[in-house]
Amino acid sequence: MTLAADTQASTRSRGLLNDLARVLRAHLPRPRRTTVPDPETPSPEDAVVRALCHDMRSPLASLEAVLGSLDRAPGQAGELLALARAQTAHLSSMLRTADATGGAVQRSRGTRRLCDVLRASVAASGLPRSQLALEVEDGAGDVAVADARVQRILVNLLENAHRHGNGAPVRLRATARAGWVDLAVTQGGVPAERVLQHLRTDRPPVDLTGLGLWSVRRQAGELGGRVLWSADGDDFTLTVRLPDR
């Protein structure tokens, strides 16, 4: 039994600038079909490039200003470096969201176990391990994963919890039964209506706000799955249910 098609994620390069170049290359618009697309509905690749350009203007301008002030204000070097690190972390976070949202997928004959995909997704998301509780039910960890979109979905969910969760603990739970695999992310204090609004829209947002959730729904649908949600008190759970073929 295997989750989806025979694909795997591409190798990640190191460094913020290398990541930026790689993500932009992966999301450059592909050649169009002969039919004329709706100009009001950008392709997923166009949407990611537009979102990156939109959201990176402010942190890049701040980073440039901070670095330019280091020589002029040596007495504030520690504070300025802290601001620069914060802006760099913010840019890296946005790149993780964009990278997990789409782009080219390399094909391979191999598969990976779901437990390995879970660990790789946690490492790629930027979410501190101390903030996460990972639960893998018996049998779920050995499910074969043969599509890179499974990891992209997981990275998007965890990165979203990292960026917007205000440091609240996160629980990631994987279960497998009756031909389905459930990947559930639970976190407290989540604005449910805002999350559902991003999941319901058919068009990609103009910036990175909600782009990851929009991508999760799109990629889950491509894999033959669906996205479910539930609330228990302050805890909000988003579950991606994928067919185990």
Results as ranks from 00 to 15, higher is better:
S93V: 01
L196S: 04
L17G: 08
P191Y: 08
Q131C: 06
R72N: 01
L20A: 13
A65M: 08
T88D: 10
G126T: 13
Q8F: 13
T34R: 15
V145F: 07
E45F: 06
D232S: 05
A65Q: 08
A146W: 14
G102Q: 14
L172M: 02
L127W: 14
Q197S: 11
G110Q: 11
R96A: 00
L83Q: 11
V155Q: 09
T7V: 07
G165F: 15
H90N: 01
R245N: 07
L238V: 04
G233P: 01
R12F: 14
C53K: 15
G189E: 04
Q106P: 03
L70N: 00
R171E: 08
A98T: 10
P42F: 07
D138P: 01
V143Q: 13
R241Q: 03
A73P: 04
A5D: 10
R25L: 04
V23P: 11
S43W: 06
S125Q: 12
A77P: 01
V150Q: 07
L211C: 04
L196D: 06
S93A: 11
V240M: 11
A21D: 10
L28V: 04
V105A: 04
T101G: 08
R32W: 02
P37C: 09
D182I: 02
L52K: 12
R33K: 06
T111R: 14
L183P: 08
R173G: 01
P31S: 04
T34G: 05
P37S: 05
P44C: 02
A26F: 12
P31H: 00
R200T: 09
T175G: 00
G188R: 11
E64S: 10
L157C: 05
F236E: 01
V66S: 07
Q8D: 00
R22G: 06
L208F: 09
R245G: 02
Q187H: 09
A4S: 10
P29Q: 07
R112Y: 12
T88I: 13
A26E: 11
S10H: 12
R12I: 12
L60T: 08
T7R: 14
G78W: 15
P29V: 00
V117E: 08
A133T: 12
G221T: 06
R194Q: 03
S92P: 04
L154W: 02
A176W: 15
R226I: 02
H162M: 12
D116S: 08
T101W: 14
R32A: 03
F236Y: 05
L16Q: 12
A26Y: 13
S215E: 00
L95G: 00
S230C: 03
L208D: 00
A192T: 06
